[in-house]
């Protein structure tokens, strides 16, 4: 196995939900008290990302996937926990110190209509990061790099003076990818990069991402809810639920023998093309909003196998014989 590129341990992030001073007053047991409500988006995430691999994070809306991505990129400051890039801790850096890592790690966002500046031409969008991080380059050298970059993502260099609105969604997402690649990073976080695109265009962007990975030995953290894409693209898959990782496994293992009850339900819900698939496993209820820090297993409320221990003690990730790690008491005790 290659060495880990990113190491995350005990990462937590909570957001205060009522910022206003007036909104914080509560009438409680005959007294007027002030309290802040917070939403716990991440509750102790441990994860490593190896060099050259694609780690996919899957989960339903509100499970904290995007917060995880943003925390790694330094777009939000985590409440607790550590993030390491190779040997260096990067979660407490100020902007100046972070500069070096901004070159190494880049992000591609979900909506290509919102993540490109509508008032900048493609040339401007790409030349800004290149000349900022390489001040020694001459104008001609920058131009040359931009042309190369555009051609490499399948957009003709002659269209570099056009604005984002002149491109289709798929082309825009390829420009976003070109922008991320412009500083030659070795790690790219992609937060649902395909969900705004049509199937045929999805295939184009996904192919491009795979080509680039091969060319440059890139590592991806790929966040998605589309499990068909995950099955195709991922090296390893992390399944998240309510701010915790409940199963982490190599892609094949996960899809062939999902272990955690949540993973099983999630996989059974994919609408497959073949007609004779089993009925999806029905989960009771919906994803709760974690306003209180959960005690015990995060999946307790919807889990058909939950017992008292699941309500009291939070399960730890344990390594299984087939290389997957699962956080579930039922599996640990052999009840499942």
């Amino acid at each position: 196995m290659t060495r880990p590129l990113i190491q995350i341990s005990g990462l937590e992030k909570s957001f205060t939900s009522n910022e206003g001073w007036l909104g914080q007053w509560r009438f409680h047991q005959g007294k007027l008290t002030r309290q802040k409500d917070s939403v716990h988006a991440l509750n102790g995430v441990n994860l490593t990302i190896n060099q050259g691999e694609t780690l996919c994070v899957v989960g339903e809306t509100g499970c904290g996937k995007s917060t995880l991505a943003r925390a790694i990129m330094g777009l939000t400051t985590p409440t607790a926990g550590e993030i390491h890039y190779l040997d260096q801790r990067i979660d407490q850096l100020n902007n100046r110190q972070r500069m070096f890592f901004r070159r190494r790690m880049q992000m591609v966002f979900q909506n290509p209509y919102a993540s490109l500046n509508p008032r900048m031409t493609v040339y401007q969008t790409l030349s800004e990061p290149i000349s900022f991080h390489n001040p020694q380059l001459s104008r001609a050298q920058v131009d040359e790099q931009i042309d190369e970059l555009l051609e490499s993502v399948g957009i003709s260099a002659s269209s570099s003076d056009r604005y984002p609105h002149e491109f289709s969604g798929g082309q825009r997402q390829r420009i976003s990818l070109a922008r991320a690649l412009s500083v030659e990073p070795d790690f790219i976080v992609a937060d649902e990069p395909l969900s705004a695109l049509d199937v045929s265009v999805q295939a184009q962007v996904l192919n491009l991402m795979m080509d680039k990975q091969e060319e440059r030995n890139l590592s991806y953290l790929f966040i998605t809810h589309d499990l068909a894409v995950v099955e195709h693209f991922a090296t390893r898959v992390a399944v998240m639920y309510l701010g915790r990782i409940c199963e982490l496994a190599p892609t094949n293992t996960l899809f062939n023998s999902p272990k955690h009850p949540y993973t099983q339900a999630l996989l059974s819900a994919i609408p497959r093309l073949d007609s004779n698939t089993a009925q999806p496993i029905r989960l009771i209820g919906e994803v709760p909003t974690p306003t209180e820090k959960p005690i015990g297993c995060v999946f307790q409320a919807r889990c058909p196998y939950a017992n008292q221990r699941c309500y009291d003690v939070s399960p730890e990730m344990t390594l299984q014989s087939d290389g997957s790690s699962v956080a579930c008491h039922a599996i640990e005790e052999g009840r499942l």
């Binding site: 199937v199 045929s200 999805q202 996904l206 192919n207 693209f233």
Partner: peptide, 16 residues
């Protein structure tokens, strides 16, 4: 054919 499940994992997808 563009659907990911139509291609073996890791292979290039068939794009239009």
């Amino acid at each position: 054919n563009a659907l990911p499940q139509m291609t073996l994992p890791g292979q290039r997808l068939n794009q239009i």
